[in-house]
Amino acid sequence: MISNNAKKQIDSWITKYPQGKQSSAVMEALKAVQAENNNQLSHDLIQAVADYLDMPGIAAAEVATFYENYNHQPVGKHIIRFCHNISCMLNGADDLILHLEAKLGVKTGQITKDGLISVKKVECLGACVGAPMFQIGDQYYENLTTDKIDEIVDGLK
């Protein structure tokens, strides 16, 4: 289930931890496996990672469902990860999410018809100082307004 390439990456992470603590590599392992599977983790993939790291499946699932950067449903080429935690919420995140959904014609968790964009609500990304904000790929976009959102989204290819 896990490709040799992913195994190689996981193995190199395992060496960074003390012997017998291979399960510490679970986050990177899940990441490597997700990257090779349409950016998505299935139940079986999580179990495969757990088996590879000799840990209970549920323990890997706890990690995989805690962090927002693991996807459990199909996602678009770009994922807009919209923060809806307290600072962003107080600065109008909820309305902006509605705006974004209307613009894309999809609800949070769905993908646009062309498969280009999906929207995900996430917890605080540590950029409260620029709230409201979202993240696409590795890039943070802060102090969002409806106009700014339109411009960013229109620029996505």
């Binding site: 209970p56 549920i58 323990a59 699932a61 706890e62 469902t65 805690f66 962090y67």
Partner: peptide, 8 residues
């Protein structure tokens, strides 16, 4: 370990 806490 059969039960666990998933989600957040």
């Amino acid at each position: 370990m059969e039960m666990g806490a998933t989600g957040r």
